[in-house]
C-alpha cells in the first residue's frame, strides 16, 4: 500500500517565510564593528547575500519538495529527504520506540505537522516534515499502534 498524502503545502511557503525573515535580519545589520570601507556602503552586505542566496532560495523549496517522500508499506517506514545531501532512511515499525508529532509556529499557521519517528539509535530515526496535521496525527497513532503489536525486544 502506498501512501502519498498531503505534501502539497510542504516546504515552499515554509521556506519562503524563513527567507523573508533572514532577509530582514540581514538588512537590519548595521552594527558598529564593521570595518571602514564597509561602513560607507552598508547595503553591500544585504545585496551580496541576497544575490548569493537567491538561487538557493528559489531552488531549494522546489528541490526539497520534489525530493521529500515518505511511505509506509510492509511495516517499514521509508523517508527520503535532502537538498544538496540526500538521505534515505528505512525504519521498521517493529523497532520504533516513540513517535512524536510536533508543530512549529509556521507549521501551525499552515496546519502542518512534523512527525519524528525515533528508534534506539539516532541513525535509525527519521523525521517527516510538512505533513497535513490530521494525516500526521493519524499516522502517529497508526505507527504507535502497530509498533505496540510488533514490539520486539532485541534492542
Amino acid at each position: 500500500m502506498r501512501l502519498w498524502l498531503a505534501e502539497a503545502l510542504f516546504g515552499f511557503v515554509l521556506l519562503v517565510g524563513c527567507s523573508i525573515l533572514i532577509a530582514q535580519w540581514v538588512g537590519g545589520s548595521g552594527w558598529s564593528w564593521v570595518p571602514g570601507w564597509f561602513a560607507d556602503d552598508p547595503w553591500l552586505l544585504p545585496v551580496g547575500v541576497g544575490v548569493l542566496t537567491t538561487p538557493f532560495l528559489v531552488a531549494e523549496p522546489f528541490v526539497r519538495y520534489a525530493v521529500h517522500r515518505w511511505e509506509l508499506s510492509g511495516d517499514v517506514v521509508y523517508t527520503r529527504s535532502g537538498f544538496l545531501t540526500r538521505e534515505w532512511v528505512f525504519v521498521p515499525v517493529s523497532r520504533i520506540q516513540t513517535v512524536d508529532k510536533a508543530q512549529g509556529w509556521v507549521e501551525r499557521l499552515l496546519g502542518l505537522a512534523t512527525l519524528e519517528i525515533r528508534t534506539a539509535s539516532h541513525a535509525g530515526s527519521s523525521t517527516i516534515k510538512g505533513l497535513d496535521y490530521t494525516v500526521a496525527a493519524g499516522l502517529a497513532e497508526e505507527l504507535a499502534h502497530r509498533a505496540e503489536q510488533l514490539r520486539d525486544d532485541a534492542t
Binding site: 535532502g82 544538496l84 545531501t85 540526500r86 538521505e87 534515505w88 532512511v89 528505512f90 525504519v91 521498521p92 523497532r95 528508534t119 534506539a120 539509535s121 541513525a123 535509525g124 530515526s125 527519521s126 532485541a154 534492542t155
Partner: peptide
C-alpha cells in the same frame, strides 16, 4: 537483530 534501521546518505 540489533539493527533498528538503515540510513543512506549521499552528499553532493
Amino acid at each position: 537483530r540489533a539493527v533498528v534501521g538503515w540510513h543512506i546518505r549521499q552528499t553532493w
